[in-house]
Amino acid sequence: MNTVSVELGDRRYPILIEAGLLSRAAEHLAPFARGRRLVIVTDENVRPHLAKLQEALGSAAIDSESIVLPPGERTKSWATLEQLCDRLLRLGIERSDHIVALGGGVIGDLVGFAAAILKRGCGFVQIPTTLLAQVDSSVGGKTAINSTAGKNMIGAFHQPSLVLIDPDVLDTLPAREVRAGYAEVVKYGLIDDPSFFDWCEAQGATLLAGDPATRDYAIAHAVSAKARIVAADEHETNGTRALLNLGHTFGHALEAEAGFSDRLLHGEGVAAGCALAFAYSVRRGLCPQPDAQRVSDHFREVGLPEGLASSGVAATGAKLVELMRHDKKASGGVLPFLLARGIGQTFLDRSVDLADVERFLDEQPR
């Protein structure tokens, strides 16, 4: 088993990574059950994994109850949050209880936010079942729902008590979902680890073909990178954690234009957003063109979008910039952008002229 620790003082928690871990989850969840019933929240797509988890819990004489929600980004809504909280309260959730989030980023974000606000805060455990959730959203305590103003606009920082990652569950994931998660893997190389981006160029296709060793290495590397960044800047106050948003300002605008739907998955938006951030960095004279070309080439080669055309977004620059104005990272009327001086040299730029971003986006092929 590979164990990564998120070092947050007395709120320190482990991330356990091991093939087949779902079938052995009971021994790790038992301390959180405390002789009571564990409530598992999941979605319709994850029912096979739910059955395996409940079988493991039953074999260890741990009672469990499940709440199964509709799949998809639209589940991260006020309406679903209200329904979920009401159901959890009817089940008698106490402040000292732990809710189990079994699913992808949507379930993790929603359950984490519910845990943050139920009875002013109860515990939760993440068991991510998508590559994107395993390498990114399950770690770090960002929880949220979407609103009409944009993605993840309503939420809280609320750390899990434990993260259990079983890479084997990815074997049942559609290829498109795996590719979308891979975008978040590549992101760690683009932020501050150029040698890892080199590795992605060499091994990304092998990972996406389902090679277990390559996949497991990428998960452990990404999780370790995120744990380090979260420990240094838990609440995104000193600029370190903001680096994890590379590609998200552009990407969230693309997702919003696509209606937060299956037209453009989150990871696909991140891939296109990273490529656009590097292209815009070239425009600003910050980044060498060959580096930006490597980024777009790699995403294209593995079947991910790398711009507006491949994202299926035809909106004007003005429309996309208007969507960006709702970005939760805006402060004092200034929207910071994650730009790059090269691969592995991402930085936060608070001097970006949105009119220039609009012109840049209008110049992109559609």
Rank of each mutant, 00 (worst) to 15 (best):
I67T: 10
G181P: 06
E44P: 04
G141E: 04
E257F: 03
R283C: 09
G251L: 12
V282G: 14
S138T: 02
L308G: 09
L286D: 05
H98R: 11
L264A: 00
E55M: 06
A315H: 10
A30F: 01
A209C: 12
L53Q: 13
V41C: 07
G332S: 12
T240N: 08
R325L: 15
A275C: 05
V334M: 13
S59P: 05
T143G: 07
A175C: 02
A183S: 15
P128Q: 10
D193R: 12
A30W: 00
E94M: 07
V270G: 08
G273C: 02
I107T: 15
L286F: 06
C122W: 01
H235M: 07
G267D: 08
V46N: 05
G247F: 12
R87I: 03
C287N: 14
K151E: 03
H28D: 00
F337Q: 12
V334F: 02
C287Q: 09
I145N: 06
T316D: 14
R11W: 07
K76Q: 11
L339Q: 05
L339M: 05
A156F: 11
D356Q: 09
L118Y: 11
A277I: 00
I67R: 13
H235D: 04
G72H: 14
V321C: 08
K76R: 09
V68P: 10
G267F: 10
L190D: 02
G210N: 10
L8H: 11
D356K: 06
K328R: 15
R34E: 09
T130N: 10
Y13L: 03
E363W: 03
L254C: 07
A218C: 14
E44V: 04
P365H: 08
E44K: 13
D136C: 12
L91G: 08
G105F: 12
R34T: 01
G239R: 12
V352N: 02
L57F: 14
E301Y: 00
R215I: 00
E82V: 11
V270H: 11
F196M: 08
T237V: 15
K187F: 11
E268L: 02
P365S: 13
I67N: 06
H298K: 04
R263Y: 04
D97H: 13
G58I: 07
V68H: 05
P290S: 05
G105H: 11
A318R: 10
A202L: 15
S310D: 05
R120W: 04
F278C: 12
T237P: 01
H252E: 08
R341P: 14
A115Q: 03
